[in-house]
Amino acid sequence: MGWGVTGTLLSGMAVWGGAGWLVDQWLDTRVFFPVGIILGVAVAIYVVIKRYGGPDQAAAQPPGGRQSPPRTQKGQR
């Protein structure tokens, strides 16, 4: 899993940064290469979260085991 995440992040930077570099060469500017790298990192992070998921639900629960019961309206039990 670690290599998959690393590869996704690096390839996102390379692909979008390369596309930005090509646009910079075509338009004779210097702005699209850094924008492409930032966009590539953002898209890669999104892909990693969608592919591998977020944190485990068990790890997201507070320690101590039992959670408090859900709140009900006044008068109900």
Rank of each mutant, 00 (worst) to 15 (best):
M13E: 03
R77C: 06
D28P: 00
T72Y: 13
P62V: 02
M1W: 01
G54F: 07
A60E: 13
T6H: 01
M1E: 05
A42M: 05
Q76T: 14
W21Q: 10
W26D: 10
I49Q: 06
G54L: 08
V43A: 14
A44F: 09
G65I: 07
I45V: 12
Y52E: 10
P63I: 07
Q73N: 11
P34Q: 05
A58R: 10
G65M: 07
A59F: 09
T6L: 12
I45M: 10
A14S: 09
D24H: 04
G2Q: 02
A58S: 11
G40M: 08
S11H: 02
G4Q: 01
K50G: 08
V31T: 09
P55S: 13
A60N: 09
R30M: 07
I38T: 15
I37V: 15
G20E: 03
T6I: 11
G75R: 11
T8C: 07
Q57D: 15
Q73T: 14
P63T: 07
F32P: 03
F33W: 14
P63F: 07
A44G: 11
W3S: 03
G17C: 08
Q25R: 13
Y46N: 08
G54S: 10
V5I: 08
A58D: 14
F32T: 12
G2T: 01
V23F: 05
S11G: 07
Q61I: 07
P70L: 13
F32E: 06
G7C: 01
G12T: 04
V31G: 11
W26S: 12
G64S: 09
A42K: 02
